[in-house]
Structure formats: C-alpha cells, structure tokens
Simulated scan of single mutants.
Amino acid sequence: MAQAAEIAKLYDALPAHYQENGVNVAVFNDWAPDEFVDKDGKLEGWSVDLARAIQDRLGVPFHYQATSFDAVIPGLVAKRFDAGFASFGSTPERLKVLDFVPQRKIGTGFAVPASSDLKIDDVRDICGVTFAVQAGSWDDQTLTRLDKEECVAKGRPAVKFERQKDQASAELAVRSGRAQATIAADVKLAYAAKQTGALKLTSLVLAPVDSCIGVRKGDPLGKVLADALQSLVDDGTYEKIMKKWGIADDRMLKKITVITGNDS
C-alpha cells in the first residue's frame, strides 16, 4: 500500500478545485468486464475498480455517473465530467479535445454465433461479411479502415455494416442472425461469450492498443491520475485488480504516461 507521504504528494498535485469539490467521473455503463452496471444497479468492472483505487490514492471523492459511451466525450468537453472511464482508444480525432491515461493494452477481436462455421483467421476473412458494430466506436473506425484497405482496395467484396447504438445491440444482432459477426475488444467479447454461451471468438486478434481514461486536453488532472495509477502499479494493487478479473497477462502496463498526441 502507498505511504502517507505518497498520498499527500498526489493530493497536493491536484488543482485546488478538485481538492475542494472532488472529481466528476463518467463511467461507460455497458462494456463488461471493463465498466458496466450490474443487475443490482452497481457500477462494476476492472476499470471501475481502478477508479476506486485511484480515488483512495488521491484522497478526494469521485462522483460517479453511469452513462452511455456517446455522452462521455461531449460531457468532458462541456465540463460536466472531469474524467471518463470508458475504455477509450486514443484516436487522432479524440486527441484534439482529450488527453488519455492508459490503463492496459486491449486487443481487437471478432465474435460469431456459437453455432457458426464462419472463420475469421486472417484480415482478408472480413471481406463480404455482415458485421454488427457499435456506431462511431474505435471498432467501427478500425473495421471501416480495414474494409477500405483489405477489401475494397484489393477488389474483394466489401464489408457490410449493421451499425448499432451500443455493443449490446451489436451482439444481439449477431445472436439473432441479423449479422454474421461483431468486432470489439477481445476481453469484452470473451466475457460476453462466457456469460451468454451464444457467441464464440474467432482466432484473429488485431494488435493490442491502449485502453484509456479520458480527460480534457491540457487538464493537470491527467498527470495526477497517471501518477496515481503508476503508484498502484508499483505497489502491486494494479496487478491484484487484474487478477480479480482474470486478465493479469502480458498486456498489463508497467509505465503509465499521459498520451497527449504531442509526443515526439
């Protein structure tokens, strides 16, 4: 556990208005096992556990609000929220308005109905497949790029998109046969497959990327959150949380640095 002097140092690094008022935290409400609302209405997930541990480390209250993914970035920009625990990917577009604190690496995976014979073992296998995706998500953007590069540009059948309001709806579209496959974080899809028994992961996993906390661009809170998370890494709390959720693997981070998009 952190020493009192370390906690005091983190607290002192917070801007005064966070010391006085706490931190308003938006939490994505439907991205298990990262962040989700359980059957009793309680926020859960490995990212939520990290938020609570960071809160304890900083010594100020976090005011949590569960919300849809599409409300998080506008809420941060409008200053309704100060931090977003929403498993963000740090896209160039998002980096125009946000900085990011990486929590761990997450691979992008593909899932099909448990009874399906469809194989997605290579990027080329996505061509001609009907995918249900969460509209505007990192995964939607990734699949759109792969469709252009690997399918359309090379004369293969284009991906067919069934864009949904959220990932739960995308997974339902696959289970009900309205789409052949979905794309999302492999940890997310593995959890859904285990919980429902109606999906299975294919063998293709794209290169892992950072799964991040978002804060307003230039807000000193980002550096403080990163330093608090680093202290959780250093004293073993971070690894304990990952073990609790069954994801203590080589995608855990050892060094936490704020992603600003200005890195040389």
Rank of each mutant, 00 (worst) to 15 (best):
A2C: 08
A2T: 08
A2D: 05
Q3W: 14
A4P: 04
A4W: 06
A8R: 13
L14Q: 05
P15A: 00
Q19I: 03
E20M: 11
V23I: 15
V25H: 02
V25A: 00
A26C: 10
P33F: 03
D34H: 10
E35A: 03
D38K: 03
K42S: 11
L43W: 06
S47G: 09
S47T: 09
V48S: 01
D49M: 06
L50H: 09
A53C: 14
R57H: 06
R57N: 13
V60C: 01
F62V: 07
F62W: 06
H63L: 07
Y64L: 01
Q65R: 13
V72P: 09
V72H: 06
G75F: 03
V77T: 08
V77R: 10
K79H: 13
R80D: 10
F81A: 03
F81D: 04
G84M: 05
S87A: 12
S87G: 09
G89F: 09
G89K: 04
T91K: 07
R94T: 15
K96N: 14
L98G: 00
F100P: 00
P102G: 01
R104A: 15
K105H: 14
G107F: 13
V112M: 05
V112R: 04
D117L: 09
K119Q: 12
I120Q: 10
D121P: 00
V123T: 04
I126M: 12
C127Q: 00
G128T: 12
V129F: 12
T130L: 06
G136T: 00
W138E: 12
T142W: 01
D147W: 07
K148I: 05
E149M: 13
V152P: 02
V152H: 07
V152R: 07
K154R: 15
R156C: 02
P157F: 08
A158V: 00
A158P: 02
V159I: 15
E162T: 14
R163V: 00
K165A: 07
D166K: 05
S169I: 02
A173Y: 06
V174L: 04
V174S: 11
R175I: 10
S176I: 11
R178F: 01
R178W: 07
A181K: 06
A181Y: 08
T182A: 01
I183V: 14
A184P: 04
D186N: 14
V187D: 13
V187G: 04
V187M: 06
L189R: 10
A193S: 08
Q195Y: 13
T196N: 12
G197R: 02
G197F: 06
A198D: 10
L199V: 11
K200F: 05
T202P: 02
L204K: 03
V205E: 12
V205N: 11
L206D: 08
L206N: 06
P208C: 07
V209C: 05
C212R: 02
V215L: 00
R216T: 07
P220V: 13
P220Y: 12
G222T: 15
K223G: 12
A226N: 09
A228V: 14
Q230S: 02
Q230H: 03
Q230D: 00
K240T: 14
I241T: 15
K244P: 13
K244W: 15
W245S: 05
G246V: 06
A248M: 11
D250Y: 12
L253P: 04
K254D: 08
K255W: 02
V258N: 01
S264K: 10
